[in-house]
């Protein structure tokens, strides 16, 4: 192996409004694991304005070094200025691996940066490993998740990946030592693309799906908004959150942010309960890392049963009401429930 080659693993520390995206902390966990195997450094790249205060959090989650590009022109994410800053840093320091969350920002920024550098980029990774030569093997779902492809980038550096939120585990936050380096920001005067007219935030009050220890998820088979409330009640009893496949979101029973699967979130709760879910790969790819999977579906041949620990081949309308009654009477205490009821 070439000893001189820089083996640093970089993580794009995504922030909006001074808040770090959870996926960045998850990526630091994975980066730490990769870097420890090759004896190299984990470097977080933090771009924004007044974001220095976030650097220590990144160190506490596994970064050895944090590069901070702090500039008023970088306050809100804009594709072209961010691409410029990110690309300049990569060209100057030559990392081996660059990991970026597969978020709205990440999936727009990463391909632009990769194209400018002319390197490979794998998309929506669910796993990352090293081969015997220290090359990064990037596991991606394809064809709706029915197949899993392993992507390598043998002849170009850095090896870049966008990674599904929830697919990696963050290290617990603890006091760690790290170096925080301020980067000189040099933006060209040329056209920097669309101007931001405004940002509208839709505030979600409930427990974030990817953090819930229990997820009760529903599919098309739930049938109506009224039936959907049963799932919400069960989730509340178990101190969990409600997830959904695509149809309930299209029908308006659930919101976009509740969608689990290839075009939604990747979750790995301790317990996943699927209700009226047929089990198309689009959905399964987002939940099959759950520790325990219980599925309730009246169709005895439902595909979801193949990916389940406990199978109930019954109409959920027969099962959920007595289950909820039973849990209410037997559960003495349950985890603190952090759900703000919508009024």
């Amino acid at each position: 192996m070439d000893e001189k080659r820089n083996r640093d693993v970089w993580v794009f520390a995504e922030q909006r409004n001074g808040e770090l995206h959870d996926v960045s902390l998850e990526l630091l966990g994975k980066a730490r694991d990769l870097a420890d195997k090759t004896g190299s450094k984990v470097i977080a790249v933090l771009i924004g304005y007044h974001v220095r205060k976030l650097a220590q959090t990144l160190v506490n989650h596994g970064a050895d070094v944090v590069f901070v590009a702090d500039d008023t022109r970088l306050e809100n994410y804009r594709l072209l200025p961010y691409t410029h800053v990110f690309e300049s840093l990569i060209k100057e320091h030559g990392p081996d691996v660059v990991l970026i969350g597969a978020t709205a920002m990440g999936v727009e920024l990463a391909p632009r940066v990769a194209a400018r550098i002319r390197t490979g980029l794998s998309a929506h990774c669910i796993d990352l490993k090293l081969d015997e030569n220290g090359n990064l093997l990037q596991v991606v779902p394809g064809w709706g998740g029915g197949v899993v492809a392993t992507i390598a980038c043998p002849d170009h550096r850095p090896q870049m990946s966008t990674v599904m939120p929830g697919a990696m585990k963050a290290l617990p936050e603890e006091e760690r030592e790290g170096r925080i380096e301020e980067m000189y920001v040099d933006l060209p005067d040329s056209n920097m693309g669309p101007e931001i007219l405004g940002i509208e935030r839709v505030v979600a009050g409930e427990q974030p799906l990817e953090k819930a220890e229990v997820v009760v998820a529903g599919g098309w088979g739930v049938g109506s908004e009224e039936n959907w409330s049963l799932l919400e009640e069960l989730a509340r009893l178990l101190g969990g959150a409600v997830g959904a496949t695509r149809p309930p979101v299209d029908e308006g029973w659930a919101r976009e942010g509740q969608m689990v699967g290839q075009s939604g979130k990747t979750i790995r709760p301790t317990l996943y309960i699927g209700v009226g879910i047929s089990g198309v790969m689009h959905h399964v790819v987002g939940m099959d890392q759950s520790k325990n999977i219980i599925s309730i579906n009246s169709n005895p041949d439902a595909d979801i049963f193949e990916a389940s620990d406990v199978i109930v081949a019954e109409d959920f309308m027969k099962i959920l009401p007595p289950l909820i009654r039973e849990l209410k009477s037997r559960v003495k205490s349950w985890r603190s429930i952090n759900i703000s009821e919508e009024k």
Binding site: T119, G120, G146, V147, V148, T150, I151, H156, M281, D288
Partner: peptide
Amino acid sequence: SPTKMAGLEVRKF
């Protein structure tokens, strides 16, 4: 193409 397919498998549970 900088990215190469290094493997492909059908998912099993």
